[in-house]
């Protein structure tokens, strides 16, 4: 069966610096996969490549069997792959509610802008990413109301500037914002970073409800215990490569230690 998402020999570069060296991961429909690894292992780079912020070769990333590595970020998002970026990255000029609404800015189908872009692409012979946006229509369980039900505190703070909230609340906005497009695949990059343990618990408590709606999830996490607790499968990365892959119940602490820090021997 084709994986929902797959990377094949994925490489990524920042200028001359190579950050990923042939990364292979898969995500099956309905699955939750965790990616762990030390600082600088390449986890965020992997997320950037999948979301199209960093472009790759077409067939290094497959979405339900279709090569998407060459597509720009907005087209990837329109295909139903949403991102909770590292550091939350709320829009400071937008209120909490506007930050959420912007996640649902794209409401499926081809709008006038897409048509103009396609026409323009045809006239200039340029690429037409709009044609690759697929048929994900952005409808589903998640709306302002259901996101507010998931994180009730956001309803109270909806008129505040997004960046006036506490770190944990900002993280809730970032998650809600990604959910607003009703993604098939949700990518979360270090959603527990810098937060107090009680806050982390609150945020992770939302994960089962997100999975119930049918989303498949990739979480990037430095907290190994947290990752093993929620994931169906775990990948460990080191220096731009996958060094371990397995189910939480079958991999040992020693395996993880070796994959995380490199074999000391």
């Amino acid at each position: 069966m084709t994986a929902l998402l797959e990377t094949r020999g994925l490489t990524a570069f920042y200028g001359d610096f190579q950050a990923l060296f042939g990364v292979d991961i898969t995500l099956a429909r309905g699955e939750t996969v965790a990616i762990i690894g030390a600082n600088g292992a390449g986890k965020t780079t992997l997320m950037r490549a999948i979301t199209g912020v960093l472009r790759s070769a077409r067939d290094q990333i497959l979405h339900a069997g279709t090569g998407i590595g060459h597509l720009p970020a907005d087209t990837i998002m329109k295909r139903g792959i949403a991102m909770v970026p590292e550091g939350r990255r709320l829009f400071p000029s937008l209120t909490v509610e506007e930050n959420l609404l912007i996640g649902a800015q794209h409401k499926g189908g081809r709008d006038l802008g897409d048509r103009i872009d396609s026409l323009f692409a045809r006239l200039t012979g340029g690429p037409d990413p709009a044609a690759m946006a697929g048929d994900h229509d952005g409808s589903g369980h998640w709306s302002l109301e259901t996101v507010y039900d998931l994180f009730p505190i956001l309803r109270e703070r909806r008129r505040s500037p997004g960046t006036a909230l506490s770190g944990g609340q900002q993280q809730m906005v970032a998650i809600g914002r990604a959910l607003m497009s009703n993604p098939d695949i949700l990518l979360c990059d270090e959603i527990s970073l810098g937060l107090a343990p009680v806050v982390i618990r609150d945020i992770y408590a939302a994960l089962p409800r997100i999975r119930e709606t049918g989303a498949s999830v990739i979480i990037v996490e430095q907290d190994i215990g947290q990752a093993l607790a929620v994931a169906d499968r775990v990948y460990c990365m080191m220096e731009g490569r996958v060094t371990l892959e397995g189910r939480p119940d079958t991999i040992s602490r020693d395996d993880i230690h070796a994959a995380y820090f490199g074999a000391a021997a």
């Binding site: 979301t51 199209g52 912020v53 720009p72 970020a73 907005d74 998002m77 329109k78 949403a82 991102m83 970026p85 990255r89 829009f91 400071p92 000029s93 937008l94 506007e98 609404l101 912007i102 996640g103 800015q105 794209h106 802008g113 872009d117 914002r177 497009s181």
Partner: peptide
């Protein structure tokens, strides 16, 4: 308006705006 929201978001942070489906 939604267009204005996209204006402000893009002005704040182009990369994150593109993750929201904005070009």
């Amino acid at each position: 308006t939604a267009i204005g929201r996209a204006f402000r978001a893009t002005s704040d942070d182009q990369v994150t705006a593109s993750l929201m489906g904005i070009r």
